[in-house]
Write a protein that binds this DNA or RNA. Structure first.
Lengths: 196, 196
DNA sequence: CGTCTACTGAAACGACTGTTTCAGTAGACG
DNA sequence: CGTCTACTGAAACAGTCGTTTCAGTAGACG
């Protein structure tokens, strides 16, 4: 592992604790045992460092998504199972820092669309919708109804995440997700079913 | 209207365009025709000004909530109508700046819980849950099931808002909300109903 | 040995930050 | 008129910011 990779990992850990929008080179360098000079030398500029951190965070996010894809042939598990699996990942306490960073980056890209943060918000919406589409049966996937239903599934997950990050009330929010799960079946079979 | 109120309104408009976390006194003062000296004199400090702006934004938010409460005796409209009404407000293009500011403040209070931003995120979750509880029938309101269902309603609204702010795809997101509406009826009557 | 490349510490640069100091101005009151 | 209070413009203060300059050090190669 090169020195650059080491410093990126250390910076990533620092950012998970202190946030990214107010990141400053001198306090960061002091905390991770480096210097502003070296950080700029290795990453080109502070902007380059921030980009690298965002890319590093994206690695974690994509890993979570791939974990869902790998939990069986995607198209067979359906939205319900996908949401269940994704929520299990989102609600894991260890993932809280990276999810807070995610929320911070999302909001930042809404306020300042251009520049370093770019279209982070739109990109992540697209990523997650693509995953959910992969989990839908082919016929449902390409229908307007299917588009609305995976959009709904994503909204429930994102909204529940915001609630959980703010209140920490795992029990209440997970109960809400549990409420929603049976309602994500194909439209022709909405409502309480005798079995799957 | 005092000079202080005028400057607060001008600052509020400026913040809706430029964001709040990166607010700086000199560019702000230049844009609204004042000076850093006067802003500090009137609001005590930059922190005092930020607090005043947050309180000003809260005024808009509470006005929207009261608008729902006033649209009929709250307890009689139910979660479905409440969500429908709230989404109409959230999806109004004119409200986009204040909602972006809301998302920014929400994320900021997650990253830095203490200080100026305080418990903004937790407080706003509580406000909205309280409104939704007001819209539930008394018996449902005090049940664990009712708590989960209004939590779910809030999550859908918040998640859909994040999607809309990032993509602007009003049609797709509103379709998702429309999908959810019939599913928010009391649990004993979940699923497609013959009528209300 | 000499030389070249990769890397890094210390310090300085200019631009910005919130805040304060100082010197007023404008208006009300006696 | 004098005086007092409320307000404000200009400038300076001390601090931090990202970045750059300069002067090296360490190691590889010939």
């Amino acid at each position: 592992m090169t020195r650059k990779e080491e410093l990126l990992e250390a910076t990533y850990r620092y950012v998970l604790e202190h946030g990214l929008t107010q990141l400053s080179l001198r306090p960061l360098a002091a905390a991770i045992g480096s210097s502003p000079r070296v950080l700029v030398f290795l990453f080109g500029s502070k902007e380059g460092l921030v980009r690298a951190v965002l890319a590093r965070a994206r690695t974690d996010e994509l890993a979570a998504l791939d974990h869902v894809r790998a939990s069986g042939d995607a198209a067979t598990i359906g939205l319900t199972t996908a949401v269940e699996c994704l929520w299990a990942w989102l609600a894991t306490p260890d993932h809280r820092p990276v999810l807070t960073l995610w929320a911070e980056s999302y909001a930042r890209s809404l306020v300042e669309p251009g520049g370093v943060w770019g279209d982070f918000a739109a990109a992540t919406v697209h990523d997650w919708l693509a995953l959910l589409a992969d989990c839908q049966p082919a016929r449902e996937r390409h229908s307007a109804d299917g588009s609305a239903r995976r959009t709904l599934a994503l909204a429930v997950l994102r909204g529940a995440l915001l609630d959980l990050l703010a209140t920490g009330d795992h029990k209440r929010v997970s109960a809400a997700i549990a409420h929603q799960l049976p309602l994500l079946r194909p439209a022709s079979r909405t409502g309480p079913l005798p079995s799957a």
